[in-house]
Write a protein that binds this DNA or RNA. Structure first.
Length: 297
DNA sequence: CAGGCTTCCTGCGCGC
DNA sequence: TGCGCGCAGGAAGCCT
């Protein structure tokens, strides 16, 4: 399940490989993987064929590729999506839904295969609109795909507004994990990293946000950043592995709570619990992560 | 406005 | 051995 670190590894690899490449052929093997494409603008294939890729950008878990036409190719990996970089004829990949053949002036012919077992992800061609906060996006322009414009910046983004995040938490009557997973407040965090960061911050997943001090909010953001950076450091030096296996190897070794229900907490030895929350599961230590009472003003 | 619930989807692991 | 069920999860849209 790709979250920010996994998506960033994919972005940086593709940025190096296909910036400046021209799309020569597009094949859609499964229409379900072309999601939320504005068909009134024209067929997906026609909007891409013969077009040059200008860069690879990311906001939260969304990827996009600004194009020479002024549009952008948007991709979301969903639960099981991968963007596999291949040479022509290479790799007997399974679950390939969309295939882009590109020609790069230096790297020659390459293939970008969108593989997605569970079909939660998808691709679309989208128009670029001005970034709502007016600050530059990854490519130095203020342009962002219209379908991505509502997504907040991630906590590693230099223009992430921590003050606005704290004000939003103070306004709403909500649990901290719900807020961390709300991509319009802060982006890039999924179920695994949320559980890990909350454990590190000793915070209960259902801690009401309005009674968190700005110091406590800063603390949980710092733990999110630390978790992201640790995964990014592990992530992706291997050019091959990052595309063959889109899943992060990081948490197969470094998980503190996710998937470890019944095992002892690494801090206090209490048994890790798993609870249903928001139609998914939350893993936490009932000893270290307790709901703190509402502060009396 | 916020939050709860549903839909999309497939492979795997469990119990019988 | 095989079947059927539940589970896993990100995002969006509907409903309350």
């Amino acid at each position: 399940m790709p979250e920010l670190p996994e998506v960033e590894v994919v972005r940086s690899g593709l940025h190096l490989a296909i910036t400046g490449a021209t799309i020569t052929r597009v094949q859609v093997f499964d229409d379900r993987s072309v999601k939320r494409h504005e068909s009134s603008r024209g067929p997906f294939l026609d909007l891409l064929t013969g077009v040059t890729v200008l860069s690879a950008e990311r906001r939260g878990k969304f990827l996009w590729f600004p194009l020479s036409t002024g549009d952008a190719l948007v991709a979301h990996l969903g639960m099981s999506g991968q963007l596999l970089l291949r040479t022509p004829g290479g790799g007997p990949d399974t679950h390939v839904r969309v295939r882009l053949a590109v020609e790069h002036p230096q790297h020659g012919e390459l293939v970008v295969a969108f593989a997605d077992q569970r079909v939660f992800g998808g691709m679309a061609v989208d128009t670029l609109v001005p970034s709502p906060d007016g600050y530059p996006t990854g490519d130095g322009t203020q342009a962002i795909p219209s379908r991505v414009a509502h997504i907040a910046r991630d906590p590693l983004d230099p223009h992430f507004d921590a003050g606005e995040f704290a004000r939003a938490l103070a306004r709403r009557n909500s649990g901290i994990k719900r807020a961390l997973l709300d991509q319009t407040l802060v982006s890039g965090i999924g179920n695994i990293y949320a559980d890990e960061a909350l454990w590190a911050a000793r915070m209960h997943y259902n801690q009401p946000t309005y009674c968190l001090s700005s110091r406590r909010i800063e603390l949980v953001l710092a733990e999110v950043r630390r978790t992201f950076c640790a995964a990014l450091d592990q992530g992706g030096t291997s050019f091959d592995r990052q595309y063959v296996n889109g899943a992060s190897g990081y948490f197969s070794r470094h998980r503190a709570v996710y998937g470890r229900q019944g095992e002892p907490c690494g801090r206090c030895g209490e048994s890790i619990e798993r609870a249903k929350f928001m139609n998914r599961s939350s893993h936490y230590c009932p000893q270290c992560q307790r709901i703190r009472p509402v502060r009396v003003p």
